[in-house]
């Protein structure tokens, strides 16, 4: 497969103004948002960057869409270095940003036609494509509306339509479904799949594990500016020891309870958490009744039990020891 995007050793260090303290500034504070990451995305792939807020996903997208200059390393879009030749790169990419940035001075349809005009498309093509996309995203009756009259799901769809107007080779979606109701989210997922089936390469960032799981061919798990794992969702989930997760919510627990649980051969790992114990166990080991009686033997009160197959969230917790949304 040909790579449509290549990221080599990308690093971004931001210097932060420490604000007005009244004193002369000491050494400037810096934050390393992206810390030497490398990956490639193949043509026709949906590639996900999964991680909590502040993991460096948006900065990575910012660099690849020419809006942030990397401190070190390179990003190549179809072989073009985005920092060296931003204008050529911009023709090949499109972005649906995290924050709504539609042009309020223009109507819905004009947001699309002007975007295409900025890319030098002839009037006839602009008009036709705008109509097609509005139809496809079920926005035709909103074509002449003002932007501030639209719901969150609609603005998101318009931003997708706008991004597609200049026929990009890669579409970046930065947290494209954050804050949307489940219905709008499902619709956007469908549209993303549709676009990919037509051959568009897509890179999306998300902290929604189901989104990454359902849509992405491969997922890079990011934390603190680094990629800590990169594989297909299936392979990532295989990283979880055992293959089954049992979460027991307890009113109280003690060391001997945990030790007894750990002693069971099928239990591969015990994670004591606040008010809860998470056990990674071999699949089909039918341990539940045994675990419940152990809890009773230790005179601990059991509040809730959940048995699940690993999700990408479990993978993230397994790798970092913390949840995606804290």
């Amino acid at each position: 497969m040909t790579p449509i995007l290549e990221v080599r050793n990308l690093k971004k260090v931001f210097s932060i103004n420490s604000g007005r303290t009244g004193k002369k500034s000491t050494a400037p504070k810096t934050v390393t948002a992206v810390d030497g990451i490398s990956f490639t995305v193949n043509e026709g792939e949906i590639f996900g960057l999964l991680g909590p807020n502040g993991a460096g996903k948006t900065t990575t997208i910012g660099i690849l869409t020419t809006r942030i200059i990397p401190t070190e390393g390179n990003g190549f879009v179809a072989g073009i270095d985005v920092a060296r030749e931003p204008i050529r790169a911009k023709r090949l990419i499109a972005i649906v940003p995290q924050k709504m940035n539609l042009d309020h001075s223009l109507k819905v349809r004009e947001n699309l036609t002007f975007h295409a005009a900025y890319f030098g498309l002839p009037k006839k093509v602009r008009e036709e494509r705008a109509d097609e996309l509005l139809e496809w995203l079920q926005l035709k009756d909103r074509a002449n509306d003002r932007i501030d009259r639209l719901s969150g799901g609609m603005t998101q769809r318009i931003m997708i339509a706008r991004a597609l107007m200049h026929d990009p080779k890669i579409l970046f979606l930065d947290e494209a479904t954050v804050g949307l109701d489940p219905q709008s989210r499902l619709m956007i997922w469908e549209k993303i799949k549709d676009l990919n089936q037509k051959g568009l390469s897509i890179i999306l960032t998300t902290h929604h594990m189901e989104e990454a799981d359902k849509l992405c061919h491969r997922v890079a798990v990011m934390d603190h500016g680094k990629i800590i794992a990169l594989d297909t969702p299936e392979n990532l989930k295989k990283m979880i020891p055992g293959g089954e997760v049992i979460e027991m919510h307890l009113a109280s627990s003690d060391g001997s309870l945990l030790a007894t649980m750990e002693a069971i051969p099928e239990v591969q790992r015990v994670e004591p958490l606040d008010g809860m114990v998470r056990l990674y166990v071999a699949p089909g080991s039918k341990l539940l009744t045994r675990l419940v009686s152990i809890v009773e033997d230790h005179q601990c009160e059991l509040l809730d039990v959940r048995v699940s197959h690993p999700t990408l969230e479990n993978v993230f917790i397994f790798l970092t020891g913390k949840g995606l949304r804290e």
Partner: peptide, 15 residues
């Protein structure tokens, strides 16, 4: 505030 200009910044022209 609105970041509306971003779409124009991403058009194929020098910033």
């Amino acid at each position: 505030y609105t970041k509306e200009i971003e779409d124009r910044v991403l058009s194929p022209i020098g910033v």
